[in-house]
Nucleic acid binder design. Sequence first.
DNA 1: AACAGGCGTTCCATATTATGAAACCTTTTA
DNA 2: TAAAAGGTTTCATAATATGGAACGCCTGTT
Lengths: 262, 262
Amino acid sequence: MSKSELATGTQAIDRASTLLVNILGATTPLYLSALAKAHDLPKSTTSRILAALERAGLIQRDRNGAFLAGHILTSFAREQNQDSVLVTRMRPILETLSAKTGETSNLAIPGNGFISLIDQVDGQYLLGATNWVGKQVPYHASALGKILLAYSTIPIPVGRLERLTEKTITSRVRLLQELEQVRKNGFAIIIDELEIGLVAVAAPIRELDGRVIGAISVSGPASRLNQKSLLEIGEMIISKVEDLQVNSLSSKPQKKRKVGAA
Amino acid sequence: MSKSELATGTQAIDRASTLLVNILGATTPLYLSALAKAHDLPKSTTSRILAALERAGLIQRDRNGAFLAGHILTSFAREQNQDSVLVTRMRPILETLSAKTGETSNLAIPGNGFISLIDQVDGQYLLGATNWVGKQVPYHASALGKILLAYSTIPIPVGRLERLTEKTITSRVRLLQELEQVRKNGFAIIIDELEIGLVAVAAPIRELDGRVIGAISVSGPASRLNQKSLLEIGEMIISKVEDLQVNSLSSKPQKKRKVGAA
DNA sequence: AACAGGCGTTCCATATTATGAAACCTTTTA
DNA sequence: TAAAAGGTTTCATAATATGGAACGCCTGTT
């Protein structure tokens, strides 16, 4: 029939897939008859296909018989967005960073009022290796926080920007300028802003669509990390994170696969 | 072949579904050959099916050609877990509650250190209708917070339990007893614990698997809501939330559908 | 009550469609 | 350079999906 692209030997699966995608994309449960009409399929065929998808747990019916995403997909969704997934995915990067720099690296996501530190890998140095996971670290005084503010949709916390050291940015105007600079650089730095003697550099983690969902930092004592090393480490974080993206997902496959002439 | 249950006219879709479920459930991308072996299918058939699923965007390949969840499913996952989904789903309940009681109702989810209020519907009374969304409301002094602590996996916040009024629970032992009581009742109440003159009652929102993911409350001035009304409203919240669950999901459909004899 | 209409499932003869063995291609390993 | 491993394509074949029609169930109408 008049199918859009090349495709052969998969009519049934194509139809099933299209129906499934339709159901997942809909904001409200869809009825069999509506689906049949929309996809221009006979009721009988539609019924058979949907029953098969339901059997597999890919879709389910509400009390009225309308179709919505099945338990397989809702639990998939739940698992996907758990912090642990991000931790697992980013662990190798944190380890590489700590190994190469000798310093502590951290992983953070946006939290309510404070950044939420969800993982840490300590470096080889004893000095500086405190555990930050779970700590209430403010956005405006941390490298991780600056990244999250600069790239994510988080609003700058309401209220006064707490002064933690004499270097802390406490002016909102000043902070906005700083965030602009962060976006220009691609990474964020703090020097003495959170704690005297503590420096850090952070870069964003992006989803495939570009959304920033977290940040990775390397931090240590100012005595070991000068401005230059911070810049280098910043670039290192960015490239490690990019490597992961590029390696894990592809339009052009690594192995050349013949695309076929039907 | 030796399929488990009744099924007819859907061999292809059944195979495709099983493969898809397998790919979604795997923690690491799966290769064509491994899938073919695991499902006892010829390579050619497997290739054809996977290509169809890929075309639909249900699966995609990583750089090495291994299969993982496709963009359709990852964006589905993302949307699912947005607060806005919960807000939309719960809105009707908040509206019913506010209409029936005349008081303000709120929707909250766990936040970092504080509960996170994500929606509110005001009642008819002028007195009492302040906007709480975005406020930093502590767990131990709110009805919503007590529910989240009692049912969810959130640990009781570290540090001192801040005294907000003379009635605030500030002893951890006392709080644990209170949470036990909450679990026994199925709802939580505060009287003067957050603010003198303010009372509230809250009940949990559960996912299909029983996990508590949020809470709904009704709050107002003690002058209008006595102990008895609070209990009644508590029961009302519980039943409204249950109604939604029952109505939106079903094993036994409302309309009796013939189950068929093959 | 009886009827019409809407929605969904089942049946079944049919040919369209999925099937899988074998050949073919690439890349990797020996 | 050969051989293995992983994947795609081809093509003759029959097994499988197909869809029109009949059926069953519920709701709303008169």
